[in-house]
Amino acid sequence: MSTRTSNLVAGTALLSLSIAVIALSRSFPKGRPGVPGPSFFPNLIAGALALLSMLLIVRTYLAADREDQPEATDPHCRRGSSRLVVATIAASLAYVAFVDRIGFMVTTFAFIAALLALYRIGTWLKITVISALITSSVYVVFARLLMVQLPAGILM
């Protein structure tokens, strides 16, 4: 996706967000003259956001014909594998969805093992050992040293 397209998409999404905020805050209790109500501040910010996103859209649109579109020079923006990012997010989604149902130990072990496999760290033996090591270290630090009640779930 070029900078131009991504700016247009982002601008449109942000504009929709600000409209949604204004629409949602219509149901809030009204303020009195001189006493702003709960919707006052969100509306103020959403209004600013709407103006800014329109500015972003218009500016991107106008700059389209010019060739001097700033290239992405940020080192963070180098090309890589977005497949791995999607997979990492999917694993994280599964983790936060199941950790309280299944339990911390098993879910965390599976989560780390899945990531290590994705990142091709080595053999299954290596993956199992590293996952077990990380899971138990995190458990010791949080549950034993910091006395945090980690999610128990049906297993552990």
């Binding site: 936060v96 780390i112 945090v148 980690l150 999610p151």
Partner: peptide, 29 residues
């Protein structure tokens, strides 16, 4: 390759630890 899973786990467990609430992990994600 080994470090990133550790950091990601700490992101989740760390945000959970403050209020012992799984909802906070979801907010973090």
């Amino acid at each position: 390759k080994a470090l990133m899973p550790v950091v990601l786990t700490l992101c989740f467990v760390g945000s959970y630890a403050v209020q012992s609430n799984v909802f906070d992990m979801r907010v973090t994600l």
